[in-house]
Design a protein around this nucleic acid. Structure first.
Lengths: 150, 150
DNA sequence: GGTGAAATTCAGCGAGG
DNA sequence: CCTCGCTGAATTTCACC
């Protein structure tokens, strides 16, 4: 991971379909060297996958929602993690500092779906107090990659 | 945007370097038809870009931080949006419902950098009360795409 | 919209410097 | 790490359905 690798990653982040010769021309390397660096970064796990950024609204997920919640005292955090893993609407779920130990980021189509998601989380039996926040607009929107179907 | 488009996007999200012939074989279309659909989705803005998901720790950004803040009463929200747009560490910034109208997601290398980012936001003159939350671990990590250099 | 075939471009590989 | 050549495979375009 030297500076050359970082420049290559920056270019791939902009457009991962760019030809190796183009990238090489921009960073000052031969195409084969660029290819080898990319291959190494994929093997090392620095690059996890080549993917697409999409418009969430075009995929019928216009609503961005954050849930902050506490688990019930008897809940097992490991079981909770497994219960929410793979949920198609949950983009992120972090264990965080502060009074609300869990922060979940969702994308849904309608407000009704927020309640559906909450009920699904509740169904795991771990849900304690919770708080729902809806994004009105985004100054920096973040990258949306659609969920991969199972 | 029919169901065929959605399947193609799902496959591209998994691996955007997959050959058109592979995708066509999985969804039941000729490679040229898949190519045409992708071209249309890019033109329509459904697909924003082809990119790479990376390991944030490998890029020296192991710390995930959320800031919740209120602007000073006299602050101009539009100016605030511009002030934080393009900040290399700010992954997301949303105007949200609730007592803390702004939610910012950051990735940084060290805790010291959290303070640096806060000072930079404060420098815009809009910062009122704020609250910092640090992610301890992630049950669903979310997709990290490195910032594109200007 | 979709197809199949042609034309072009690209990735992938090995040898040599 | 670069160049060169090569080969197979992929993208891209086009006329046609």
């Amino acid at each position: 991971m030297d500076d050359m690798d970082r420049r290559i990653i920056g270019l791939l982040a902009e457009d991962s379909r760019r030809a190796l010769a183009d990238i090489g021309g921009l960073v000052g390397l031969a195409p084969s060297s660029v290819n080898e660096r990319i291959r190494r970064m994929v093997a090392a796990g620095v690059i996890r996958r080549f993917t697409v950024e999409t418009d969430p609204s075009a995929l019928d997920l216009p609503l961005l929602v954050f849930l902050r919640l506490v688990l019930r005292p008897e809940a097992d955090a490991t079981a909770f993690r497994q219960a929410i893993a793979g949920h198609p609407r949950i983009l992120e779920c972090h264990h965080v500092t502060g009074a609300w130990p869990w922060l979940i980021k969702l994308r849904v189509e309608t407000v009704a779906e927020i309640e559906v998601a909450l009920d699904q989380i509740r169904a795991s039996g771990f849900l304690g107090q919770h708080e729902t926040t809806i994004a009105l607009s985004s100054a920096v929107a973040g990258v949306f990659v659609p969920a991969t179907m199972p």
